[in-house]
Design a protein around this nucleic acid. Structure first.
Length: 552
RNA sequence: AGUCCAAUGGUGUAAUGGUAGCACAACAGAUUUUGGUUCUGUUUGUCUAGGUUCGAAUCCUGGUUGGACUACCA
């Protein structure tokens, strides 16, 4: 087992455990069901569930559903699905809405203690009396209502006597506090809205600040981990726990994870979906977990990525090449190799008898001794990749050009003798002769060739649609650029190859199956596939040192 | 401007007063029936100025830079 240093949360936990502050730890992953989870959430999921596993504690999945206007059951389902797919099991499935009655009682307690009051101010009036960063706020005219009046009014709010916005319940903290969140924050507002779980039972809903900490407390969460932007909420979080005298959960913050060449805010992702810049939340170009899944990413690779980037408290933007490294590393070990030609040109082996065919053994995965092999048919005419031929070989080009030899993977060495072009100058056929004694496995030719290329036999070829995905944005950090982030969308983020040629064995592929298309990259059969029409998504290309060399 | 948070190679992250390390990326080479994989090597870093100390990335002070906060969102 590799010795790894602790991150700052593990240090806190080990200290708490060592000092006997807690017998075991309890964490939670608390998404609001108002969108799909993305790779940043995946890091948070791995963190919260991972800590619980590492320290033999527990971790809940809790939906923070206090705003009925934006939340939907569709999101609840996708979130549960994503967490499970990533490989985690929650101890308890909870909803903040489970606690509405308890939260209401907490609010009443605060009123009785003189720590909360009903305010009739409008939103504008409240903003005007809030003060700002440099200026203290001023007390609301309703701040000194009697406890009995507050109690009665709050009950009426719940009973539906008032329209949206007519009244709010506020905590009585300090209107001059340097932390704006402590200037008598709103804790309940009136919303005559249908809730995805409680239906029309309520017309008042608690605010985040009056729900999150209390929910943590109810669930006996010991370490409540959230992102940095909530750091200013911590004094309020602690204030409520202290005033209510409930289980003291503690909040800890870490920096949210960012990735280059994408956006990570739910609002922006929702825009991409609604404005049809992508085909949906699970479009393979999206950084959503469902998008990555459809793209062909494995749970293991995402967990490994989350582990590798670690956690800290400083702003960050991780290079997407690290994510790509993680999926390549995983797929290299488990994905079967197959041959597919994406941009075909015909190669004729002039000295191979017409009508003759052969079958070669092809190993499924050189990285896996148990991977087995399959048969690949061969004939006089084969499809090869257009980029594997040059009319005049540039320097260091180890593939086909007149006079040059390559090995056809699993088959023979061929020498290029000639080629044919059409009126536009496009190469239409390449003529080669093969060396019968160079047969793969018992090559007695004594020849060494530098290049090996993939191919598909023309009469045996099947077709498939192949979707070549690239990064969604042209710039590293679209959210930081001037103007609309959507101006930086990469127009070539999807290229569709309508008719790629694939070897016959591939027609057995089921949606979700992952392969390495030899020399091209890793691909995943898409859910759009039908028995007669296979669709493959490119997960990620292979590292391509020739592409770099060719640019020089 | 007030409060809070953070500053370590191109990127991410370690070193918890004692040799600045790891991964990705980049570069060079070896191996290779994938220009893949694997292996070897190389380049690049402690924001700044003081202070404490035998010794500071680490502790202290000032500065600089970046971020967060002024929703009846979470």
């Amino acid at each position: 087992m590799e010795e790894r240093s602790l991150n700052f949360l593990e240090e806190i936990i080990e200290k708490d455990l060592a000092e006997g502050k807690y017998k075991s730890i309890y964490t939670r992953f608390p998404p609001e069901p108002n969108g799909y989870l993305h790779i940043g959430h995946a890091a948070s999921i791995c963190l919260n569930f991972g800590l619980a596993i590492k320290y033999q504690g527990k971790c809940n999945l809790r939906f923070d559903d206090t705003n009925p206007v934006t939340e939907e059951t569709e999101y609840v389902e996708s979130i549960m699905n994503d967490v499970k797919w990533l490989g985690f099991n929650w101890d308890e499935l909870r909803y903040t809405s489970d606690y509405f009655e308890q939260l209401y009682a907490y609010a009443v307690q605060l009123i009785r203690q003189g720590d909360a009051y009903v305010d009739d101010s409008t939103a504008e009036q409240m903003a005007a009396t809030k003060g700002d960063i440099n200026k203290p706020g001023t007390d609301s005219a309703w701040r000194s209502r009697s406890i009995d009046e507050n109690l009665a009014l709050f009950e009426e709010m719940r009973a539906g006597k008032y329209p949206d916005g007519a009244k709010v319940l506020r905590a009585k903290v300090d209107m001059a506090h340097p932390n704006l969140l402590m200037r008598d924050p709103i804790i309940y507002r009136i919303k005559h809205a249908h809730h995805h779980r409680t239906g029309d039972a309520w017309c008042i809903y608690p605010m985040y600040d009056f729900a999150h900490g209390q929910s943590d407390s109810i669930e006996q969460i010991t370490h409540s981990i959230c992102t940095l932007e909530f750091i200013h909420h911590r004094p309020l979080y602690d204030w409520f726990i202290q005033k209510l005298g409930i289980f003291p959960s503690h909040q800890y913050e870490f920096a949210r994870r960012n990735l280059t060449y994408t956006v990570m805010s739910k609002r922006k992702l929702l825009q991409l979906v609604n404005e049809k810049h992508v085909a949906g939340w699970d479009d393979p170009r999206m950084p959503t977990i469902s998008g990555l899944r459809r793209r062909g990413y494995t749970p293991e690779s995402i967990r490994n990525f989350a582990d590798t980037i670690g956690i800290a408290k400083r702003d960050n933007i991780t290079d997407v090449s690290l994510l790509e490294f993680c999926i390549r590393e995983n797929l290299n070990k488990v994905a079967n190799r197959v041959m597919a030609v994406l941009d075909p040109v015909k190669l004729v082996i002039t000295n191979y008898p017409e009508g003759q065919t052969e079958e070669f053994d092809a190993e499924n995965n050189p990285e896996d001794e148990q991977g087995g092999s399959r048969k690949v048919p061969f004939s006089r005419e084969i499809w090869i990749e257009r980029e594997d031929f040059q009319e005049q070989a540039t320097k260091k080009f180890f593939r086909l050009a007149p006079g040059l030899m390559v090995r056809l993977k699993y088959a023979y060495i061929v020498r290029c003798d000639d080629f044919k072009k059409d009126e536009q100058g496009v190469v239409t056929e390449i003529y080669c002769s093969y060396l019968p004694e160079s047969k793969s496995g018992n090559d007695t030719s004594g020849l060494k060739v530098k290049g090996t290329i993939h191919w598909v036999s023309v009469p045996h070829a099947q077709t498939a649609e192949v979707r070549l995905y690239d990064r969604l944005f042209r710039v590293e950090n679209p959210a930081n650029e001037d103007g609309d982030f959507k101006d930086y969308i990469n127009p070539d983020s999807l290229q569709v190859v309508a008719n790629a040629y694939i070897e016959p064995a591939l027609t057995q592929a089921q949606p979700g199956d992952r392969f390495q298309f030899l020399r091209k990259g890793y691909f995943c059969a898409d859910k759009d596939s039908t028995p007669g029409h296979l669709v493959f998504n490119r997960t990620v290309g292979l590292k391509d040192s020739w592409a770099k060399e060719a640019k020089k």
